[in-house]
Write a protein that binds this DNA or RNA. Structure first.
Lengths: 192, 192
DNA sequence: TGTTAACTAACGACCGTTAGGAAGGTGAAT
DNA sequence: ATTCACCTTCCTAACGGTCGTTAGTTAACA
C-alpha cells in the first residue's frame, strides 16, 4: 500500500517536474518516508520512473478501452464526441495523462530508448483500436466521407492530442475553447 | 559573437533537456568556454533561460509573419496548406520551435509565471493575426463555411500544433503521415 | 529464522554560483 | 603618441548545497 502510494506520488512529481526536475528527496517526503527507503522498493530513480511509466500506460490503456466499449450502443458521432465530455469528467486525476504526454514528447535523454519502446506501442494500439472502431461503425452507419479509416483515426488522434495538451497545461477553459472550435470543422470534414 | 553563440547553444540544450536537465557545464563546453565565463554575459541560469526564450519568441514571431506576408497573393488554401510545406523546409533549425513548444507545455516550475507571461501573448498574437487573415481573405474568396473566423483560426492552430509537435519528437515521416491524414478532413470541414 | 521495509549516516559527483585575477581592447588625459 | 584607467571576457579555484546512491542497522512480521 505504501508501495503504490510511492508510485503514484512519483508519477505526480515526474508529471509536474519531468525526470530531471523530480527529486527523490521530495517524493519521499510527500509519501512520508525517508529518501533511502525508496531503495527498498526500487533499484533506483530509473526503475521508479520506468515502473511509473508502464503503470500509467497500462492503466490508461484499459481506461480508454473501457470508454469505447461502454459506448458500443451509441452512434459513431456520439461515441467520438462523447469521448471529450467523458475525458473532462475523468480528468480530476489527470496526472497520468500529463505524465504520458510529457514523456512522450520530451523523454529524459538517457532513457529515450526505453521510453519510445513503451510509448510507441501504446499509441499504435490506440490508433489500431480507433481504426477498427471507425471501420465497424461505418459498415452499419455508412456516414464517413472516405473509407481511409486509418487516416481518419490518425486525424482524430491529432485533434484529441491537441486539445488535451491544451487541457493539461492551460486548464479546462482553454480546452473547451479549442474543442468547440475544432469539433464542428473536424466532424463536417469527416462525414459525407 | 561569442554571446550569440552562447545563447543559441543554451537554447538547443534547453530544448533538448529542459530547464532542469540542461547543465551550464555542458553548455559552456559546447561553446568552448569555461562554466563561470557564462556569468560574464548573464546573471545566472534563470536570466540565460529567459533571454533565450524572448529571443526564440521574437525570432519565430517575425519568421512566421514573414511567411504569411509573402503569400499574400496566393489563395487562402494555398496559404494555409503551404505553411506546412514551408515549415518543413525551414525545419532544419527547429531548435527554437522545439524549445517554445517544450516550455509552453512544461515550463520550469520556478519560472512558471515569467514563462506564461511571455508565451501567452505570443500565441494570442498568432491567433489574432490568423483570424484577421481568414476574415480578409474570405471577404474576397467567400469560401469558408462559417464566418466564425476566430474559431477557425483556433482550429487551424490546433492542427498545426498537433502535427508540429509530432515533428519535433517523431521526425519528418510521422509528421507527414499526420498532416496528410488531417489536412483533407480539416479543409473539407472548413469550406462550403 | 529469514524477509521486508523502514531508518541513520555518509558517500562521491555534480549543481549553480562567487571570488579573484589575467589578458586584451577602448578611450580619455597627458 | 604614450600612458593610464577602465571595462569586457575569459580563466582557476573553490564554495555550499543537492543530487542519486550505498552501507549498515533495527523493528515488525511471516
Amino acid at each position: 500500500m505504501k508501495a503504490t502510494l510511492l508510485l503514484q506520488t512519483a508519477l505526480r512529481h515526474f508529471a509536474q517536474h519531468g525526470y530531471e526536475g523530480a527529486s527523490l528527496q521530495e517524493i519521499a517526503q510527500d509519501v512520508g518516508i525517508k529518501k533511502p527507503s525508496i531503495y527498498a522498493h526500487y533499484r533506483g530513480k530509473d526503475e521508479l520512473f520506468l515502473t511509473a511509466m508502464t503503470y500509467a500506460l497500462e492503466t490508461q490503456k484499459t481506461h480508454l478501452a473501457t470508454y469505447f466499449i461502454s459506448t458500443r450502443h451509441l452512434s459513431l458521432e456520439q461515441s467520438l464526441k462523447g469521448f471529450f465530455d467523458w475525458f473532462l469528467e475523468e480528468s480530476t486525476e489527470n496526472d497520468q495523462l500529463k505524465f504520458i504526454l510529457r514523456i512522450a514528447y520530451f523523454p529524459p535523454v538517457k532513457l529515450e530508448r526505453e521510453v519510445t519502446g513503451l510509448i510507441n506501442p501504446f499509441f499504435d494500439t490506440m490508433q489500431r483500436h480507433l481504426t477498427r472502431l471507425l471501420r465497424e461503425r461505418d459498415r452499419t452507419e455508412q456516414i464517413l466521407y472516405s473509407d481511409d479509416y486509418q487516416s481518419a483515426a490518425l486525424a482524430y488522434l491529432t485533434v484529441t492530442e491537441g486539445t488535451m495538451t491544451e487541457f493539461v497545461y492551460n486548464g479546462v477553459a482553454a480546452y473547451e475553447r479549442r474543442f468547440t472550435a475544432i469539433w464542428p470543422i473536424f466532424w463536417r470534414g469527416l462525414v459525407r
